[in-house]
Amino acid sequence: MRHQIILLLIAISVVGTLSSSSCNKPPYKPDYKNIQGFVIGKETCNTDESKDFWLIDFTYGSDNPKVGDTLLVNGSKYTNVLKTNGLNQQLKVIGMKVSIDYRIISADKIITTGCTVSSPITYNLKELTVLNQGEIR
């Protein structure tokens, strides 16, 4: 009998602890957003190509916000283009589908300056600051 009372008290305290500790908490809301797109090209500005901006068309994901600009690249028209210089080396492939977590997209278009090649090719676009990134398969 005494054993049953102790087990009952332990069960009541466990249930009480669990119910009081997990209630009244709002659901977790991440402090970043996600956007998905296709790598469509890159700027040519620096002799060290790792410093060049890459162009991404963010029309792949159905929930993507309209944050970029329309751009004509190699005869193809893209409608939601941003540029970034934070793209991982393995994602720097034209046509690659990418998923990017971000906090910041520049409010204004960024003009690339300080080019070290003789005939730079740059685009006046908003810049996406990459937080996390990966390939969409």
Rank of each mutant, 00 (worst) to 15 (best):
M1F: 04
R2Q: 13
R2L: 11
H3D: 13
H3Q: 14
Q4H: 07
Q4I: 03
Q4C: 11
I5T: 10
I6H: 02
L7R: 08
L7C: 02
L8I: 01
I10S: 00
A11H: 06
A11G: 04
A11I: 03
S13M: 05
S13A: 11
S13H: 02
V15G: 12
V15I: 10
V15S: 10
S19T: 15
S19K: 04
S20N: 14
S20P: 13
S22Y: 10
S22I: 15
S22H: 09
C23S: 13
C23G: 09
N24K: 13
N24Q: 13
K25S: 14
K29S: 15
P30Y: 10
P30L: 13
D31I: 07
N34H: 05
N34I: 13
N34P: 01
N34R: 14
I35H: 06
I35R: 02
Q36L: 01
G37D: 05
G41E: 09
K42A: 13
K42W: 09
K42H: 12
T44K: 11
N46Q: 12
T47F: 04
D48N: 14
D48H: 04
D48W: 01
S50K: 12
K51F: 05
D52K: 05
D52L: 10
F53G: 05
W54M: 14
W54R: 11
L55K: 12
T59R: 03
Y60C: 08
G61I: 04
G61D: 00
S62C: 00
S62G: 03
S62D: 13
D63I: 14
K66V: 11
K66Q: 14
V67N: 12
T70G: 07
L72Y: 01
V73P: 00
N74M: 05
N74I: 08
N74C: 02
G75D: 04
S76Q: 12
K77L: 04
Y78R: 00
V81M: 03
L82K: 07
L82C: 02
K83D: 04
G86P: 06
G86M: 12
G86R: 08
L87S: 08
L87P: 01
L87G: 06
Q89P: 02
L91D: 12
L91R: 07
L91H: 03
K92A: 10
K92H: 10
G95C: 14
M96W: 04
K97D: 03
V98I: 09
V98S: 10
I100F: 06
D101L: 04
Y102L: 11
R103N: 12
I104H: 15
S106C: 14
I110G: 02
I111M: 11
T112C: 07
T113W: 01
G114C: 05
G114A: 04
G114K: 01
C115K: 09
S119E: 12
S119G: 08
P120Y: 05
I121Q: 11
I121S: 07
Y123R: 08
Y123G: 07
K126C: 10
E127T: 11
E127D: 11
L128A: 08
T129Q: 13
V130W: 06
L131E: 06
L131G: 03
N132D: 07
Q133Y: 00
I136H: 02
R137Q: 09
R137L: 12
R137A: 10
